[in-house]
């Protein structure tokens, strides 16, 4: 990376100024992110529990306790289901929206604003709006499906775990798809027009030119979009919490962290689980980045 700093002789005043500008960043990030993060890692090896005296070293007991806990296992499975559904739907939908936005000539700014809007709204409000749509007695979904003849009796959607997981994911996808769309649109717009012309002259149809020109050139964007979708789906909390609270059927790992730490007041167990969730989410997004780069780089 080229350094963009000016080639000037360093003045002593410059160092003072730099310190003055950077100290707030160091203080805030150090005190409120790095120090708590280190504490989280350390304390996960101790028993930190406001209801019990002392904080003895317990080694990996918090972690092994998590592995044995059935609720935690369910929360992991739910989270993996969220991640799988969210990543697939956001990528397909976001790609479709990006290709469409890239093609539309008139009013693209307005279509883009409309597309981005769900991302800008508070997730809690989104979840409430959808909760009303999913309402078993008066919700729009039941009415619409009855009217279309898809179902013949009203359904209590959240009684079935698979459906509940899907609907929570759907609300999450509604919010996060715009981000994928914007990332992919930025990537699409960086492709030079004449590459498509060249592909067309070589006799490539739309599908072939998408596969041979578009996909390789937006691979970086896809990798970023995939990691963003994964990290956000791993962190899913608001939608599941509003739609069905602490219900085990839809409980995500983060809801489990929240319940463990702030309702059952088992701090160190919650910290251990949050560390595991962080590692898992980082690893999965790293895998995408590596795979996408490996499969699409030019040799």
């Amino acid at each position: 990376m080229p350094s963009s700093s000016p080639r000037r002789s360093r003045k002593p005043g410059e160092l003072v100024l730099a310190a003055a500008l950077v100290v707030p960043i160091v203080a805030i990030m150090g005190g409120l992110v790095f120090w708590p993060l280190a504490t989280s890692v350390l304390d996960s090896f101790y028993r930190v529990d406001p209801m019990r005296p002392g904080t003895p070293f317990v080694g990996l007991a918090n972690y092994s306790g998590l592995l044995a806990d059935g609720n935690v296992q369910t929360a992991w499975l739910n989270t993996f289901a969220y991640v799988a559904m969210a990543v697939v739907l956001e990528t397909i939908g976001g790609m479709g929206a990006a290709l469409l936005l890239n093609r539309v000539k008139h009013g693209r700014q307005w279509l883009l604003a409309i597309t981005v809007l769900p991302w800008c709204l508070p997730p809690v409000v989104n979840a409430i709006v959808w909760m009303w749509i999913f309402n078993p007695s008066y919700g729009l979904l039941n009415h619409a499906l009855l009217w279309l003849g898809v179902i013949d009796a009203r359904k209590v959607w959240f009684n079935d775990q698979a459906t509940a997981l899907f609907l929570v994911s759907l609300v999450h996808v509604w919010r996060m798809m715009p981000l994928t769309a914007v990332i992919l649109l930025a990537a699409l717009q960086s492709i030079p027009r004449d590459l498509y012309e060249a592909a067309r002259l070589d006799g490539a149809g739309p599908i072939k030119s998408f596969r041979l020109v578009t996909l390789p050139l937006i691979a970086g964007g896809i990798a970023i979009a995939l990691s963003q979708s994964t990290v956000f789906a791993f962190n899913l909390f608001d939608e599941a919490w509003i739609l069905s609270g602490s219900s085990l059927d839809t409980r995500s790992v983060i809801i489990q962290v929240y319940l463990t730490a702030f309702q059952n007041l088992r701090f160190s167990s919650g910290m251990a689980l949050s560390i595991l969730a962080m590692i898992a989410s980082l690893l999965v997004s790293l895998i995408y980045v590596l795979r996408v780069y490996r499969e699409t780089r030019y040799d």
């Binding site: 990030m29 990290v231 983060i254 969730a277």
Partner: peptide, 17 residues
């Protein structure tokens, strides 16, 4: 790099702080 660290990871120590 902290962009990649989910907020909840630091939430419990932050709460005590």
């Amino acid at each position: 790099a902290t962009l990649a660290i989910p907020a909840y990871t630091v939430m419990i120590p932050l709460y005590r702080l």
